[in-house]
Design a protein around this nucleic acid. Structure first.
Lengths: 237, 237
DNA sequence: CTACTCCGTCATAAAATTGTAATATTTCAA
DNA sequence: TTGAAATATTACAATTTTATGACGGAGTAG
């Protein structure tokens, strides 16, 4: 996976999408496009972009509707949204912010302004949510440095195992089916063999084990729940 | 997985309905069919399927109309809809139909993709309603973590015993015949020896006993009602 | 190009669970 | 008190589920 943030552009006018797309590329972002709310929703669920640029005036007024929906559903609630709006009336702002949108930009806007706002929102959202290290006993996952440590010593693992652990540590004490884990860690609608999850669980456990000190084995935090899936828990099985 | 989700297929072509029906059966879903928007609506209100697969090219363009209507009406708004669309060339029209459809699949599609998307949508929609832990004295069953504890200490039991206990705890103070228990815990249309229920009751009791503290034995909550079945009750026999 | 790393799948091993049948125990009415 | 009926318990082989090691392919850095 690339480290540049991916931005989804949702607008019904191809010209605008292209224009924004070029601006984003220039600024070093990856971009995807969608021309309808429906297409956008599918893309968001499937690909999990880091941010969504959403035209308020989609046909059928569905822009707002989409924003509301994204913020309502747990799976997508934490994806920041910047609204693109043509009008400058207060109503838009109020309504948009009410929905939980992170920022808005009024058309016409300069690419520079757009980029600036995107960066600001990304900084804010990654700062709030992902920046704080998560710690369990002496196991620490630090999103900022993208690093896992046990007793301050680095734990070596692949990117997938990192995402897996990250997901588990942000959702402790809950079972997740293999399907669910695939959705969260690999992205929805990616078809994998179910057992693939097992294999990566195994790899994660091994990584944790070989970095654990004799007293405590952190692999024990990743618990198998027979017939149901896996669970990250500090309570013993 | 006591009951398989039921999926309603709405398409005017019998061939397509059949094809999808077979795919759904294979994947372990129940399926129903409807060939018109009207029939579909009646079925939906009557039977409340867990998900609707809706061809948007129903005669008279009534597919979109149906979707809109379902999402508008309180009673049906929470039933997820997956649209089946003919081709991407229809995108212009698709735009107008945001309506809150949960996903869409373009024909021709592979059964595998369809199943994957159905599962993803179902997971999303049902995952939102969280089950609260059920507690009786110091015995707690927590569906979220899929865990049973006595005085905060984990109780070890197999999947079937978990389902059994879950059923009992959600239906306390009532007697259930072995047949009824089989239906609820194993699912209908599963034939088992009647005595099998006894065995699992025994296993459940044993699990509860070996996790109980000296003062109180939680196995006592599972009461035998001679000649009738079993009962979960907080009142002593 | 070569040597890595990481990924997803498969085959196989290991472990846990399941249903049944056989046997033991309890209950209740006569 | 006895014995048939109902329930409990035990043991076990079959099945299901999970764990693990190995392998080839993709992608990358040197």
């Amino acid at each position: 996976m690339t480290t540049e943030p991916t931005i989804l552009i949702v607008d019904d006018e191809a010209a605008i999408r292209d224009m924004i797309g070029v601006a984003l590329d220039t600024a070093g972002f990856n971009s995807m496009e969608a021309e309808s709310a429906l297409e956008a929703h599918v893309n968001i669920v499937d690909k999990r972009p880091d941010l969504v640029l959403l035209d308020w005036m989609l046909p059928g007024g569905s822009g707002i509707e989409l924003a509301r929906r994204l913020k309502r559903e747990e799976l997508t609630a934490d994806i920041p949204i910047i609204m693109l709006t043509a009008k400058t009336s207060e109503d838009n702002k109020v309504q948009g912010l009410d929905v939980g949108v992170d920022d808005y930009v009024t058309k016409p806007f300069s690419p520079r302004e757009l980029i600036a706002r995107i960066k600001a929102v990304l900084r804010r959202s990654t700062g709030n949510l992902r920046d704080k290290p998560i710690r369990v006993f002496d196991l620490e996952l630090d999103p900022a440095s993208h690093r896992v440590t046990i007793e301050e010593k680095a734990v070596d693992m692949g990117p997938t195992e990192y995402r897996l652990l990250n997901f588990f540590m942000t959702h402790p004490e809950k079972v997740f089916s293999r399907d669910h884990i695939q959705d969260q860690v690999w992205g929805a609608n990616v078809y994998l063999e179910e057992r693939t999850v097992d294999v990566h669980i195994g790899r994660l456990r091994k990584a944790l084990t070989s970095a654990s000190s004799p007293g405590i084995n952190y692999a024990g935090l990743i618990q198998t729940v027979r017939g149901a899936g896996y669970r990250f828990s500090t309570k013993p099985e």
